[in-house]
Simulated assay, not measured.
Amino acid sequence: MSQSNPAASAIFATKAEASRGRLFDESESATRTAFQRDRDRIIHSGAFRRLKYKTQVFVYHEGDNYRTRLSHSLEVAQIARSISRVLGLDEDLAETLALAHDLGHTPFGHAGEDALDACMKDYLGFDHNAQTLRIVTKLEHRYAQFDGLNLSWETLEGLVKHNGPVITDDTDINDLPRALTEYAEIQDLELSTFAGPEAQVAALADDIAYNNHDIDDGLRAGLFSIDDLMALPHVGQAFQSVIEQYPGLEETRVIHESVRHLIGSMIGDVIAETRARLDAAKPQSASDIRTLSHAVVSFSAEMTQHNATLKEFLFRRMYRHYRVNRSMSKARRIVTELFSLLHAEPDLLPPEWQVGCDGVKGIKTARRVCDFIAGMTDKFAIEEHKRLCDLSDPRA
């Protein structure tokens, strides 16, 4: 039997000792709970290491201080652990899901994903959440007994459903990305219910991290100013409070202090709202939380509106800023040209990636090329594009 996590004290926490297990049976660890073991497998995976050079908003070479997928994932994990600790949930499971939630992202952020999805439109498409499942169940080749990482049921469920049920009244299983439908034939992840509470915490921790850290990165990059933020409810108030409390404070410290306050206030809001929902629902287990008709971990209505206003501002002033647009335009061309070339000439793939292809422009070849490109870092994609498309580059 798996060890228990004494920090998971709430009756509705997911219990490591009661895990539904792994697809492939393994002996339990003598020193770690099932979820600690999952976390360690993710940290040691190749996909996790590659997050270091994958874009959050800015391509890696634009500066050392901007967030990458790796630093973002670590920040999400810290927030998820903090919230889980206060609520008496399993911190290790929340951390595991936070660390793994972006494994399926392509190089160049959402621009790369959009380009790859367009390339795959005739071959069942591309979705980064489904790609995360594909990575941890199939594409990582580290263990002698199985492909993937053989993670616990609870971790796989949380990765697939952290944003809510994927089968709804408007969506059936045939509408889902192929990676999900394929895996559903092997193991039932109960796709029509909510995920456990730790996965819901990880999803909100992601929102808290990227909204606030995009404020930091956007200010650092000069895409907007503190004055531009003053009109935003909640955000403007936080900056104004710091400026009034510390007159004459240098701008970099104003930014850090304000963002720190914003993160703290959002965490406090999630904890208060979640406690109220738990008090109303009175769940007696994590399974009870899964069967509710709504998420139990949530922002308040007021904070939800503040976040929507902030996201609209960031979309308009940062994600669609002309400097970001120029960079992402180049990124889309790189992904599109790499896919077109490798799909038409699969013999250009490294030998291990040619395995499983079905010839020029085949559907299996498309998926292998897609997996190859999706796993690239920004750095590798740029270099591979030069090697294959720049006739003056002598490298093969």
Rank of each mutant, 00 (worst) to 15 (best):
Leu223Tyr: 14
Asp228Met: 03
Ser192Tyr: 14
Asp206Cys: 11
Asp227Thr: 10
Ala203Gly: 09
Phe224Arg: 11
Ala231Tyr: 01
Ala179Val: 05
Gln187Val: 13
Asp175Thr: 04
Phe194Thr: 09
Asp206Arg: 11
His213Tyr: 15
Asn212Val: 09
Glu185Ile: 12
Glu198Met: 12
Asp227Cys: 01
Met230Glu: 00
Ala221Glu: 07
Asn212Asp: 03
Gln237Cys: 02
Glu198Val: 06
His213Met: 14
Asp207Glu: 15
Ala231Asn: 07
Gly196Met: 05
Phe239Glu: 09
Asn211Met: 14
Glu190Asn: 11
Ala221Trp: 06
Glu198Phe: 13
Ala195Asn: 09
Glu198Cys: 04
Pro197Glu: 08
Ala202Glu: 12
Gly236Asp: 05
Phe239Cys: 01
Leu232Lys: 07
Asn174Phe: 08
Asp227Ala: 14
Tyr183Gln: 02
Asp217Asn: 10
Leu229Val: 07
Phe194Glu: 12
Glu185His: 14
Leu229Lys: 10
Gly196Ile: 01
Asp175Met: 06
Asp216Ile: 02
Asp216Lys: 13
Leu176His: 09
Leu229Pro: 00
Asp206Ala: 03
Gly222Thr: 10
Pro197Val: 09
Asp188Ile: 05
Pro177Trp: 02
Leu223Arg: 03
Leu191Gln: 05
Ile208His: 03
Tyr210His: 15
Ala199Gln: 06
Val201Gln: 08
Val235Pro: 03
Pro233Ala: 00
Ile173Pro: 04
Asp170Lys: 12
Asn212Gln: 12
Tyr210Cys: 11
Ala202Gln: 12
Phe239Ser: 04
Ala199Glu: 08
Asp170His: 00
Asp206Thr: 13
Ala209Ile: 12
Leu191Ala: 04
Leu223Asp: 01
Gln187Met: 14
Asn211Phe: 11
Asp214Leu: 15
Arg220Phe: 02
Arg178Val: 15
Val235Tyr: 02
Arg220Ile: 08
Ala195Glu: 10
Leu191Trp: 07
Pro233Gly: 00
Val235Ile: 15
Leu232Cys: 03
Asp175Asn: 13
Val235Gly: 03
Ala238Ile: 09
His234Asp: 00
Arg220Pro: 01
Asp216Leu: 08
His213Thr: 14
Arg178Asn: 10
Leu189Glu: 05
Asp214Ala: 10
Gly218Met: 05
Gly196Thr: 05
Glu198Arg: 11
Gln237Trp: 04
Thr193Arg: 15
Thr168Pro: 00
Asp169Phe: 00
Asp172Ala: 05
Thr193Cys: 13
Glu182Phe: 06
Asn212Met: 12
Ile186Tyr: 05
Leu204Cys: 06
Glu190Trp: 10
Leu219Ser: 12
Ala199Ser: 13
Asp188Arg: 11
Asp217Ser: 07
Asn212Arg: 03
Ala221Val: 06
Asp217Gln: 04
Pro197Ala: 11
Leu189Ile: 00
Met230His: 12
Ala221Tyr: 02
Ile186His: 09
Ala221Leu: 02
Ile208Tyr: 01
Asp206Asn: 14
Val201Asn: 07
Asp175Val: 01
Pro197Phe: 08
Ile208Phe: 04
Pro197Ile: 11
Ala203Ser: 15
Pro197His: 06
Ala195Asp: 14
Val235Arg: 05
Phe239Asn: 00
Asp216Phe: 09
Met230Gln: 08
Glu185Ala: 15
Pro177Val: 01
